[in-house]
């Protein structure tokens, strides 16, 4: 046996780490969702779909901006020294994924603004007629439009990856300490974004396209999740114990039912039938995917904080 009694009882640390509550998972979810939306709209733009009369890529940049701002607000709520939030922008720390992330967020906004300029929404261009002139200039060059599309894809990949790398770089929490976490959050961001765009798309062809894409993203997400867990259970004792939290431990019911079952497998089955026209497209599958993506962030943030070196038998 081994029993460790510690006289310390620091808030947010003891008995288990509890530094990040709802704010961080909400931000990670919205950041991933926006990352996926940027990649999708970037893909549409590079394919010239923005010229079609109906394309969700015209509303995605403004929606992305709103959702990302809500996410950043959640992150702001999480800061313990809110007056010092600007300190992140007084420096660049190359070894800190959080520093990379704060600068990536700064780069995302101009890209979204430029994308909004391609086809400014009518209420915005009525209020600011100068936007129409900028839009005409922008649309004068196909090269510029394609560059904006590629910038969306690049910024989306950076945003989606960093949210996972942020946690993955924290070696003190064995559950997070996997390079696959970045990929998992990116693919999960893509699947939730495809589901979200599927929900708001008015064009039937676009809905079909996104449902098909979402099926691919969900399949890849399942594979990455499987590899992530395999990586943990075939590693050292601390990693094995941390994987048990998800597989058979306290977080297992939520993980298996809401993340894997209702969040990935059930919507995958529903959407596979829908794209083959066996059943009609309904909002059920996309809503499940979005909820599953949110629960995934909550479960991983909570279980990661519960995973620990010293609570593993045999480790000092």
């Amino acid at each position: 046996m081994r029993e460790l009694v510690v006289t310390r009882h620091n808030p947010m640390i003891d008995p288990t780490l509890n530094v990040w509550g709802w704010e961080v998972p909400v931000y990670l979810f919205l950041g991933g969702l926006v990352a996926g939306m940027m990649i999708i709209s970037g893909f549409f733009i590079t394919r010239g779909r923005h010229r079609q009369e109906v394309c969700s890529c015209t509303v995605l940049p403004s929606l992305s901006m709103i959702l990302l701002s809500i996410g950043i607000l959640a992150l702001f709520f999480d800061l313990e020294y809110k007056l010092h939030a600007w300190r992140m922008y007084a420096t660049f720390q190359p070894a800190s994924p959080m520093s990379w992330g704060s600068w990536i967020l700064i780069l995302v906004y101009p890209v979204l603004l430029a994308t909004m300029m391609i086809r400014p929404t009518s209420w915005l261009s009525r209020g600011l007629p100068v936007l129409n002139r900028w839009s005409r200039t922008l649309n004068g060059s196909e090269h510029r439009i394609r560059m904006i599309g590629f910038a969306n894809i690049a910024a989306g990949i950076a945003l989606g990856l960093y949210t996972g790398v942020l946690l993955g770089a924290l070696g003190a929490r064995p559950l997070w300490n996997s390079p696959l976490l970045g990929l998992l959050f990116l693919v999960s961001g893509l699947s939730t974004a495809a589901a979200f765009v599927h929900l708001i798309a008015t064009d039937a062809e676009e809905r079909q396209l996104l449902a098909r894409a979402d099926n691919h993203f969900l399949s890849i997400e399942l594979l990455v999740l499987f590899l992530f867990l395999i990586g943990l259970v075939t590693s050292t004792q601390v990693q094995i114990e941390s994987a048990k939290l998800l597989l058979v431990g306290d977080f297992a019911p939520v993980f298996w039912v809401f993340v894997v079952g209702l969040g990935i497998i059930i919507p995958l089955i529903i959407q596979s039938l829908a794209v083959r026209h066996r059943i009609p497209h309904t909002p059920v599958a996309p809503l499940l995917v979005i909820a599953g993506g949110l629960v995934l962030r909550f479960v991983l943030v909570a279980a990661g904080q519960a995973s620990h070196w010293t609570r593993t038998p045999g480790v000092h």
Binding site: I13, L17, D78, R87, M88, L170, W309
Partner: peptide, 12 residues
């Protein structure tokens, strides 16, 4: 310090 708590999570 901005109180982001990354260092707390990073300390084993």
């Amino acid at each position: 310090c901005s109180g982001c708590k990354a260092c707390i999570a990073a300390c084993p």
